[in-house]
């Protein structure tokens, strides 16, 4: 799992531009988190892909986009996994390393869940 983090102009169409580069390079995006960030008018996109080579290809392409201010591959120590899980008793939040969240989901077997990776 490789995590790419970027700061982008918070404008309409920016997601389409960013995702378009993954489509062009036929790379599946495994997880994605997007949100406002500390810089006014900018947003941070954190997404993950399976392989290093894909991440490198994507970073090269993303660096050419006018609306991408900054883009980097984030090393593992800065990764953070989240999951929202639910079963008949209600819902719960899981936070931790990728392995921790992964194994919690494996052992608790929630009915439904969504899992993603963030990084700073």
């Amino acid at each position: 799992m490789e995590v790419i983090s970027m700061i982008v102009n918070d404008e309409f169409g920016v997601m389409q531009r960013v995702m378009g580069e993954f489509t062009r390079k036929k790379i599946n995006v495994e997880t994605i988190v997007v949100g406002k960030c500390e810089i006014v008018g900018k947003a941070r996109i954190v997404l993950s892909v399976k392989e290093r080579k894909q991440a490198e290809q994507a970073v090269e392409r993303l660096g050419r986009l006018q609306d991408v201010v900054q883009v980097e591959i984030v090393d593992e120590t800065r990764h953070e996994a989240y999951a929202l899980v639910a079963n008949s008793f209600g819902k719960a939040r899981l936070i931790g390393s990728l392995e921790e969240v992964g194994s919690l989901i494996d052992t608790t077997k929630p009915d439904r869940f969504v899992k993603t990776v963030n990084a700073l």
Partner: peptide, 14 residues
């Protein structure tokens, strides 16, 4: 056309 042009331009504006 804004969306149509995204992959074939360096950049575009609406």
């Amino acid at each position: 056309i804004f969306s149509l042009m995204i992959p074939i331009t360096k950049h575009n504006f609406r």
